[in-house]
Design a protein around this nucleic acid. Structure first.
Lengths: 114, 114
DNA sequence: TTGACATACAACCAAATGGTTGTATAAATA
DNA sequence: TATTTATACAACCATTTGGTTGTATGTCAA
């Protein structure tokens, strides 16, 4: 059911849980950068940076477009917003503002709500 | 410099990047639960759930208080908000609304801003 | 006091993660 | 054409992660 949603949340937060990837994302949100231009910024191999970009891409946090031999990465602010929305959902839950908490928490059929 | 901030962001997003932990956090934001009450909800050992709770606790996303032999976990909405704030900072960066981008992106002394 | 319950924590294991080097291919340039 | 540049990707490795079981300790209740 909401397994795909959870997969997406896993990918989003995992991608965000690394400082190099967050930095790549920041730069890519400000403007497009080629992967090698990004790689020059960090004290690691090109291949390592390339992998970080791939993680961000799989999470939907950035897209690459081709320009000649370069791959230009630009941040996807919509994905950032969707991650933020997941956190706001948690805040709403705390506020008690979500109507069908049971739907969200999947009570599992047990009668005891603890 | 901002290494402590980055450590904190790492911990926050890492803690959020697991569906079991997000579920524990949701429940704990709605109301306090003992660790064993939480553990009963999931198809894994008590020790595994205990470790997830510890990850959330280290990230500041929940706190435990002692009541007799129980450890009651409650979600810390402030930490959720601080994670959301990190994402809003990314959105602001995209909007070009952050004044000193160079401070945030730590230009590294290079003159070529790409 | 005895036993059941709740937690804590160590030791272990398979899989994933974050890095490396090496190789291949396409595109720009001398 | 030959060379350099940019990317892609495989193979490998050390560490971390997410799970397990086992043991110890503290608390409640009969």
């Amino acid at each position: 059911m909401n397994a795909a949603l959870e997969d997406r949340a896993d990918a989003l937060f995992h991608a965000l849980a690394d400082r190099t990837r967050r930095d790549i994302l920041r730069r890519s949100l400000v403007q497009e950068h080629s992967v090698s231009a990004l790689a020059r910024r960090y004290d690691m191999s090109f291949a390592a940076v390339q992998k970080h970009v791939a993680v961000l891409e799989r999470a939907g946090l950035l897209r690459k477009r081709r320009r000649g031999r370069e791959a230009l990465a630009r941040g996807e602010v919509r994905a950032v917003r969707s991650a933020a929305a997941l956190l706001h959902e948690l805040e709403d839950l705390w506020r008690g503002r979500i109507d069908r908490i049971d739907a969200l928490l999947a009570e599992d059929g047990r009668q005891d709500p603890c």
